[in-house]
């Protein structure tokens, strides 16, 4: 079943158009890598999906529901979980409070999230702004999981992190995907890591989706043409 469907989506920041026609679909339980060089519209697409930005043309559907006129909190309640670029946890709250504030009924609860990221259990009472970058990222993912989404969107989830922490986060996402079948849309620059976790990829070039196919086909011509690899 198609969970997310974008059709010829256009969006602009004031007079500056950023998306010129993005098409993508995500099936239930699928992991889609959203790829492209810097400034090609990946984060804008994520913002449009989560309704943090309105699109000017095209269609955004989630679980068969048109999201055009929906505010961000309604989109989130419909089952879209966002792990935003730059982590953006609730800095003054503790780890536990960050997770509780976002909690909604479902299989993901505090115990399950801390089992996925044991470091969060160790830092349970610590204020989020005093966590390391990697721990904040784990908390951002945990917070999104606590909303019990049907689709989680990760925008540069491992950017700026040490390799060992990146590995820990990729392992956790792989575990989430294998054990729960949660659908993911992942934006990241690491082709190798995306290759490990993603089923399909959509490549954006200057605000347009220019290629969609199996993740295993990205390496080679596609990567050379659009990703500068």
């Amino acid at each position: 079943m198609t969970l997310l469907h974008l059709e010829r989506v256009e969006a602009a920041y004031g007079a500056a158009q950023a998306l010129f026609g993005v098409d993508l679909t995500v099936e239930e339980g699928e992991v889609l890598a959203l790829m492209g060089r810097n400034g090609m519209g990946k984060s804008t697409t994520i913002r449009v999906i989560c309704r943090l930005m309105k699109h000017s043309a095209g269609r955004v559907q989630f679980a068969g529901r048109d999201l055009s006129q929906v505010p961000p909190h309604v989109a989130a309640r419909a089952g879209l979980g966002l792990v935003p670029e730059g982590r953006r946890v609730f800095g003054p709250l503790t780890v536990r409070e960050n997770l509780i504030a976002a909690a909604r009924q479902g299989p993901w609860d505090f115990a399950k999230v801390t089992a996925l990221f044991p470091r969060l259990a160790e830092r349970e009472g610590q204020v989020a702004r005093h966590l390391s970058g990697g721990e904040q990222q784990m908390l951002a993912i945990g917070r999104a999981l606590m909303t019990n989404p049907r689709l989680m969107l990760l925008d540069e989830a491992t950017e700026g992190l040490a390799p060992v922490v990146r590995q820990e986060i990729w392992d956790a996402l792989d575990a989430v995907r294998r054990e729960t079948g949660l659908a993911l849309v992942v934006v990241d620059k690491s082709l190798a890591e995306l290759g490990r976790i993603a089923d399909r990829a959509t490549v954006l070039e200057r605000g347009r989706s220019v290629w969609t196919g199996p993740m295993c086909d990205v390496a080679g011509d596609v990567a050379n043409a659009y990703l500068g690899v």
Partner: peptide, 13 residues
């Protein structure tokens, strides 16, 4: 502190 961040977890400020 940040209304948008709250909205992304499904809560209406």
């Amino acid at each position: 502190q940040n209304a948008v961040r709250v909205e992304t977890v499904g809560l209406s400020p």
